[in-house]
């Protein structure tokens, strides 16, 4: 069988051109192997050959991403490659971004199997680990040997269309893809095995890892509530009757901003829930049960709070992607900040 044709992407540093001072290096292509391609080449054990190496400066790529992507794709095209490998980028942020961008673009736009490698905390990892195979590497080039040992075999399998094992088996970052299989032991036995290992203090591997959640710094308390502007936000889907923004009942792709100036109480006739993840009877009968406008108006009149902010924000928290919720909240938080809101009550169903 003919050797697989490989195009390799590296930055100006690994090409030996230079460091930051030449990071605006424009994309160029050289025939054959350059720099870390040597190690990859020997990792292919004769099954594949690097026919060309594309080199691009990290700053040029970062600052002119669309243009650079186009130029690099053009350079790659003419080599009729069976496989594209970018990096490894280790913990170099812009390089990781470039490797992820190119691996994704080559796979999607040129239909050439692609992989890259980088350190788990490289910002490129979170951005691209779901769309392309990213081999998990150490944080510096000291880990080159280890990186190549994982990248070369995975790249060959991917190029040949062979079955690829789990993230843990192959050494790539989890892509959030589930595959059904027949286990030898049933769930109850596996669970008991796991808890016995846990009790003994031995290592065990969960079958359902929890997502990573980061933490934020705790905001200081309100000193004088009687002067504070309070905003309300809900993931419980309370919207004006008829759901004017058509917020989806699950996997919401948007949130709504609704003016409640002059509204003293939410009624069955004027508001409802758009949420498809709980029995809507109680919220539809009395939407204040989810968004307590009535009580906050009373507290405002009594001077217990300064003011109820005139807009509330709502979405449906039902299978909604964490990334979507983050981007909704980022957007309306900016508005809350600009409008001088002092504190927020967020209700969830």
């Amino acid at each position: 069988m003919d050797k697989l044709r490989v195009v390799h992407y590296i930055n100006q540093f690994f090409a030996g051109i230079g460091g930051e001072e030449v990071a605006d290096h424009r994309p160029e292509v050289r025939e054959g192997v350059v720099g870390p391609g040597m190690a990859l080449q020997s990792g292919f054990k004769g099954e594949a050959e690097i026919v060309a190496t594309v080199i691009c400066g990290d700053t040029y790529f970062g600052e002119n991403t669309e243009q650079a992507k186009k130029e690099v794709l053009e350079l790659i095209k003419k080599y009729d490659a069976d496989l594209f490998i970018a990096g490894p980028a280790f913990n170099a942020g812009r390089y990781g971004f470039a490797c992820g961008t190119m691996a994704e673009a080559v796979e999607k736009e040129l239909n050439i199997p692609s992989i890259t490698g980088m350190y788990i905390e490289n910002p490129g990892a979170d951005m691209f680990k779901k769309s392309v195979y990213i081999v998990s590497t150490k944080d510096s080039a000291v880990g080159m040997k280890d990186a190549v040992a994982k990248m070369a075999p995975l790249a060959l399998k991917h190029a040949k269309g062979e079955a690829i094992g789990t993230a843990a088996e192959e050494g790539y970052m989890e892509r959030g893809i589930r595959e059904n299989y027949f286990a030898e032991k049933r769930g109850s036995e596996r669970a008991v095995d796991m808890i016995i290992k846990k009790l003994k203090g031995e290592e065990f591997e969960t079958e359902y890892p929890m997502p990573d959640f980061d933490r934020v710094e705790i905001a200081p308390a309100i000193k004088d509530m009687s002067k504070a502007t309070i905003a309300i936000v809900t993931s419980g889907g309370i919207v004006p009757k008829g759901n004017p923004d058509h917020i989806e009942s699950s996997s919401a792709s948007k949130y709504g901003s609704y003016d409640i100036s002059g509204v003293d109480v939410l009624t069955e006739a004027t508001y409802e829930t758009a949420h498809g993840g709980y029995d809507p009877t109680y919220a539809n009968d009395d939407p204040n049960r989810v968004l307590p406008v009535d009580v906050l108006r009373d507290l405002e009149k009594e001077g217990k709070i300064g003011k109820l902010y005139e807009t509330y924000f709502a979405t449906v928290g039902n299978g909604t992607a964490v990334a979507s919720a983050q981007s909704f909240a980022k957007e309306y938080s900016q508005k809350l900040k600009e409008d001088g809101v002092d504190a927020v009550i967020l209700t969830s169903t």
Binding site: E217, Q326, Q334
Partner: peptide, 24 residues
């Protein structure tokens, strides 16, 4: 959403039924 709000420095209280999720 709670975290994105608090990230801007505005204190936020989460009223919710499933407290462990809110903690996580």
């Amino acid at each position: 959403m709670v975290k994105e709000i608090e990230r801007t420095g505005i204190p936020v209280v989460h009223i919710c039924t499933v407290v462990p999720i809110s903690l996580t």
